[in-house]
Simulated scan of single mutants.
Amino acid sequence: MPWWNPWSSTTKGDQKDEESLRSKTTRILNSTSEAVGEATDSAQRRLQDASSSSTFKAFAEPQTIIAAAILTTASLGLYKFYKSYLRRIPQATGITAGFLRKRSLVGKVTSVGDGDNFRFYHTPGGRLAGWGWFPGRRVPKDKKELKDQTIHLRLAGVDAPELAHFGRPSQPHAQEALDWLTAYVLGRRVRAYVYKIDQYNRVVGTAYVWRGLFRRDVGLQMLRAGFATVYEAKTGAEFGKGLEAKYRSAEWWAKTKRKGMWAGSRKDYESPREYKTRYASTPPPDEPKV
């Protein structure tokens, strides 16, 4: 028979109380943890909402809107300035309608092909933009580098004697006209006021070069030298504003002073326009008749 234990009932009661206490403590800790988690999430959401609200308010501030508008306008203005004044145009076909009769092109003459036309390398901005002295801003000299990179210009308002083409003979003084134009413009900086693109993809315009301290109209000086006539045609004649009268006066002066091709007898004289008209209806000797 076992001995009676007077503490047995007390120990069982303590175990139950201890388990109950542990259970309550666990529940309290879990509840507290959940409450802390909810509070943390709520605080984070409030911080995010506050941040978003402050960011939106910052973008909505008048000074921010004004600064963005100024920056956008300045960027568009710089792009437009570059496109209008600093973009290099490689060929006459790249000249937009906005240039014609409104703008001029600056460049360096690289070759002279006939008595009234030449090619120049477009140098937008000229020396102020670094052409001729800044690294990377040079005009090519090699023919391979210049291929498809020059603008072909036909002098407006003048007509020089025709060189031999397609088996047709050259006109008297044609070589002299070519030599005069070559000596006058080759290798020089030129400014051309452009009017239109002709059927040969040349730009028709008035060209100016600096000779000493003065800027000279190339076409006008050629007329005064007696190596060109005023361009005569029923349609398509182009003159700069107010230049036609000056050109006719220069031709009259050269005739009077017997300059250039006017120095000899005019008995058998044939103008460049008459020459071209005479051959217009006759195919060149080396071309078959159709």
Score class of each variant (00 low, 15 high):
162 E>K: 05
59 F>W: 15
165 H>S: 12
212 G>P: 08
236 G>Q: 01
107 G>W: 03
80 K>R: 10
5 N>Q: 12
257 K>S: 06
193 Y>V: 06
38 E>A: 13
139 V>R: 01
49 D>N: 15
290 V>P: 06
168 R>V: 04
147 K>S: 12
37 G>A: 12
152 H>A: 08
81 F>Y: 15
264 G>N: 13
276 K>F: 00
189 R>C: 07
135 P>Y: 09
165 H>C: 03
198 D>N: 13
107 G>D: 01
82 Y>F: 14
96 T>Y: 01
55 T>H: 15
218 V>H: 07
211 R>Y: 09
272 P>Y: 03
82 Y>A: 06
114 D>L: 03
113 G>A: 09
19 E>V: 04
248 R>W: 01
120 F>A: 00
45 R>M: 13
201 N>Y: 11
124 P>L: 04
145 E>N: 10
130 G>F: 01
117 N>H: 07
202 R>W: 00
279 Y>P: 05
135 P>H: 07
186 L>M: 11
91 Q>N: 02
15 Q>E: 10
48 Q>P: 00
186 L>C: 04
42 S>F: 10
255 K>V: 01
103 R>F: 00
38 E>I: 12
49 D>H: 15
254 A>C: 05
205 G>I: 02
33 S>V: 12
210 W>P: 00
259 K>P: 00
66 I>A: 13
258 R>I: 00
244 E>S: 02
171 Q>N: 01
36 V>G: 00
166 F>H: 15
65 I>M: 03
61 E>C: 04
23 S>G: 08
2 P>H: 10
228 A>R: 05
274 E>D: 12
88 R>V: 00
1 M>L: 09
268 D>S: 12
92 A>K: 02
252 W>I: 10
121 Y>K: 03
201 N>S: 14
115 G>W: 03
98 G>R: 13
278 R>G: 02
93 T>E: 10
28 I>M: 08
57 K>C: 10
232 E>A: 14
118 F>Q: 03
102 K>T: 04
183 A>M: 00
182 T>M: 00
264 G>I: 05
211 R>V: 13
169 P>T: 03
188 R>Q: 14
225 A>F: 06
192 A>H: 02
54 S>G: 07
261 M>H: 05
40 T>D: 15
96 T>L: 08
88 R>Q: 14
133 W>M: 01
108 K>P: 00
233 A>S: 14
137 R>C: 14
277 T>V: 12
3 W>M: 09
16 K>T: 05
278 R>Q: 08
256 T>E: 14
125 G>I: 09
233 A>Q: 09
58 A>V: 01
83 K>R: 14
35 A>Y: 09
281 S>F: 09
199 Q>M: 07
144 K>F: 10
271 S>P: 04
252 W>Y: 14
141 K>F: 07
51 S>H: 14
53 S>N: 13
133 W>Q: 06
163 L>V: 03
205 G>V: 02
113 G>F: 06
225 A>H: 05
255 K>Q: 15
238 E>R: 15
72 T>E: 13
139 V>S: 02
120 F>Q: 01
85 Y>C: 07
240 G>I: 03
96 T>C: 03
92 A>R: 02
221 Q>D: 15
216 R>I: 09
28 I>C: 05
192 A>D: 08
118 F>W: 02
138 R>K: 14
182 T>K: 15
126 G>I: 04
164 A>D: 05
36 V>H: 11
114 D>Y: 02
219 G>I: 08
271 S>L: 06
122 H>G: 07
235 T>P: 00
8 S>A: 12
48 Q>K: 15
188 R>M: 09
189 R>A: 06
